[in-house]
Design a protein around this nucleic acid. Sequence first.
DNA 1: TGACAGATGCAAATGGTTCGCAATAGCATC
DNA 2: GATGCTATTGCGAACCATTTGCATCTGTCA
Lengths: 141, 141
Amino acid sequence: MSDEKKRFERFRQDLKAAGIRLTEPRKVILRVLASASDHPDAQALYARAVAIDASVSLSTVYRTLKLLEERGAIQRHAFDDGRARFENSDGEHHDHLIDLDTGQVIEFRSDKIERLQAEIAAELGYDIIRHKLELYARRRS
Amino acid sequence: MSDEKKRFERFRQDLKAAGIRLTEPRKVILRVLASASDHPDAQALYARAVAIDASVSLSTVYRTLKLLEERGAIQRHAFDDGRARFENSDGEHHDHLIDLDTGQVIEFRSDKIERLQAEIAAELGYDIIRHKLELYARRRS
DNA sequence: TGACAGATGCAAATGGTTCGCAATAGCATC
DNA sequence: GATGCTATTGCGAACCATTTGCATCTGTCA
């Protein structure tokens, strides 16, 4: 089974387990999300969904995104361009490097940084619930 | 001279040098910003400005904030609560820890993390222009 | 002091996101 | 497979932070 199908199945099981109806629009949106390897915003997801089923509405896209985000199935990011962007939350945690010229998002991960963050928070008397590390950068010339 | 006055003077010089008029509303807003030690949003700044001079408008607050941000005199942050928040950009660079329960923002800085970030970007073939590190945390119980 | 470009306040526009509501469609039951 | 109840949908209107058009005002410099 492809990663895409696995993701779709995971979404489906997740909603089912929560007693949430698997409606036609939701199926379409789950499919779109499952096959996204980038960090699309709501409009982009809506466009992809409409390409599959023209009757899907933007409201439902937003509602489904919220639903999945609350259940932890996808992650919402607010990069500096204003709108929210989403990605599947399977796979391990990672941070983002945003190419300022192209808008491209590159994922990376550093255990050292993660550890340092935890240390800093601990020193201040806090436990980190989540964190956000974004590097806005330009290709080296 | 107090830090507040110094900051106000810096703002004033900065605008003057750029040939930008030092109008009454701008003076009020500069004063408000110079005396802010927290991370207020536009509404909060507007409220503080109006307390000094009731004729200042929200539009002008936004316009002045944009002006100062473009000149690098203040910094805009987009924490996860939606609206933009601002702070003076004198003093050294720092990152933020946001208390999820109170909304309080604590500043911190780690040279180690800064270095690691630069290394990671370099490995990916990038130069960091700016970055954002936010720890959303809860007080340790 | 006068003139003029830049700055202001106001209200209306924008853009992303959410909400109210009447109509529709899952899904459990018969 | 038909029925009924409720969750879900699409639509448009509402929201909220922020921006903008425009007629009016005001720094600034000659």
